[in-house]
Amino acid sequence: MSFRVSSSPHNRVQRKTANVMQAVALACIPGILAQVWYFGFGVLIQILIAVLTCLAAEALCVRKRNRAVTPVIKDYSALLTGLLLGISIPPLAPWWIAVIGSIFAIVIVKQLYGGLGQNVFNPAMAGYVVLLISFPVSMTLWLPPLSILSYDISLIDCFMVIFTGYSEQGYSLTQFRTDLDGFTMATPLDTIKTGLSNQQTYSELLNLSIFSGATGQGWMQVNLAYLMGGIWLLQRKIINWHIPLSFIFGLGGLSLIYFLASPDSAITPSMALFSGATMFAAFFILTDPVSASTTNKGRVIYGLLIALLVFVIRNFGGYPEAVAFAVLLANMCVPLIDYYTKPRTYGHVG
């Protein structure tokens, strides 16, 4: 009899890398659904374009690197990158935006660094930042919530706008974004940013049609949906609590302090937490294990650092949305954070 020889341990948990990736992708579903509900089918089309591009780019790279393609595709990491990038892109942005972003994320940020586990930067966020810097106009053309749009946008319209630039009826994206009074409607954060810089006060800005309720229609619901997904991930121990919680508390705390000090020129804490990409970032972007800190203490520092960067960029920087920049800047600090947050090993003093 020839016996099989293997190394201990001979038992393992059944959760694999692919399971982790799948779980994270599944946890995005409530948020995506909310986005579809409030902002139309555009997001689905963007996700589809990004995911397909990512998978294709990944397969091509792996083949060029002479590695087996199937196991790499099956780890779902490229799919997740595409999904996260697709969610981040404005729903009616031209199709090549998602394609360029996906290719950059996979080829440059991930595979050129050595593939899964080797990338320094979060691929989705790096792709997003490249798009934001290269195509600032397309990347800021966020659609207002459907309920306050002057026109109905069908799935066909979405396809038409994304791939041709004009809807079935011949409306352009800019026309969709213009309200009945002829004003262009931006995202709540964008609006506030512009308004505050135009010497308007926060309370004045809230009277605009884009804000129905405290934090703007649609965006708050989307954020809540992502929060739900995140809580589910925490429950399943797919992600650790350290990063999301330190980020949320950090951002909330900083916003509160600033708001109390200067109520008319600051974004409210609730606005800061439930607008833009806050919740999505907290649970789905920051928690990317590859580019985040790996020690528990380090994760708390990492979360707080991003919170600080987001707060600073949103309030004092030139961009209304700051998560992507903050994440990339924090990614650079990870090796340092990890180095200085080594846990004390058993039996070692101090």
């Binding site: 293997s6 393992r12 890398t17 990491s77 080797q118 294990p289 020690t295 058993y346």
Partner: peptide, 26 residues
């Protein structure tokens, strides 16, 4: 009951190992 595991994949730096280590190693 105890499947064989020979399919080593890339480390995704998830740190599940660090969380499991009884000696607080990395």
């Amino acid at each position: 009951a105890l499947p064989e595991y020979n399919n080593e994949q890339a480390c995704i730096r998830c740190s599940a190992c660090a969380d499991a280590c009884p000696a607080s190693l990395l």
